[in-house]
Design a protein around this nucleic acid. Structure first.
Length: 263
DNA sequence: TTCCATGTTCCGCA
DNA sequence: TTGCGGAACATGGA
């Protein structure tokens, strides 16, 4: 569940379950998921402290802990959080688990192990070091800034939307939805888009991200007229009843409707 | 068994 | 030199 709206849901989940509780320790820790710290180091940085607030930037989550610094989390393709008390409620594939002093747990489950966790001093330093572009939710709300940042690109529109250095937060799933609703073919070159098309693309993207967050549409619960509920080759398009096709663009398989995504 | 998957990084080519 | 796209990565489910 790892694109911007999903990560936003993880943030709210973390807020509701794991803030302001004393951390007793890290009792499960797969070092392959750790980015820049050892299991021992992570334990010593967090034990006895508590998380005071959460931030989301793109697909990353940052949990501020007393003392100084942030625990950052990235979910890869299959990561998610689960808070629980009883062992029988534990998720599968726990990569890292925080034990709180009140005998509850927060588990970071990561089946494919493509996620990672680490420590950073400030969010701004982290964003700079990774060369992340502006958060997609912020950038798409400003159509002029969006057009400036997208403009002049050589590659496909889909590739640009998914490029975390251009803007952070959009992945394969939501890029498909944005192009679907904007009526743009996934392979359309950014350089072929008119300015008003870029503006419309920004508006569409912002609306989709906001709607997904509002509806908490993590893995399902998307509106029926969206592509996502039927993102599969051979299904009928909810807009024009043409047939959904699959196409590889920028190295990822995507789905689109050839009937109304011609622009 | 084979293919596919919401992630990023790395390498080769224009 | 820069930026783009494809392959690689790890793992499990259909």
């Amino acid at each position: 569940m790892p694109e911007l709206p999903d990560v936003q849901m993880c943030k709210e989940y973390f807020d509701a379950t794991s803030l302001k509780k004393e951390i007793a320790g890290i009792d499960r820790c797969d070092r392959r998921l750790l980015n820049n710290i050892s299991p021992r180091g992570l334990k010593s940085r967090l034990s006895g402290r508590s998380f005071s607030e959460m931030r989301r930037y793109g697909k990353y989550l940052f949990a501020r802990f007393a003392g100084k610094g942030y625990l950052f989390l990235h979910f890869g393709m299959t990561g998610f959080l689960k808070a629980y008390r009883k062992e029988e409620n534990a998720p599968a594939h726990i990569g890292i688990r925080i034990r709180f002093a009140d005998n509850t747990f927060l588990a970071f489950s990561c089946c494919r192990r493509l996620g990672h966790i680490g420590i950073t001093g400030t969010v701004e330093d982290f964003v700079r070091a990774r060369q992340l572009g502006p958060d997609a939710l912020t950038l798409t709300r400003n159509r002029t800034a969006f057009a400036d940042r997208m403009g002049g690109r050589r590659g496909s529109t889909k590739g640009a939307l998914m490029n975390q250095k251009i803007m952070a937060g959009i992945g394969n799933i939501y890029a498909d939805e944005i192009l679907f609703q904007a009526g743009l073919h996934p392979a359309k070159k950014v350089s072929e888009l008119e300015e008003d098309q870029l503006h419309a693309l920004a508006d569409t993207a912002a609306r989709i991200l906001e709607t997904a967050i509002q509806r908490r549409a993590g893995a399902k619960g998307w509106p029926a007229r969206w592509l996502l509920p039927r993102r599969e080759e051979g299904r009928s398009c909810p807009r024009c009843s043409d047939i959904i096709r699959r196409m590889k663009v920028s190295g990822r398989n995507g789905y689109f409707c050839p009937g109304h995504q011609k622009g």
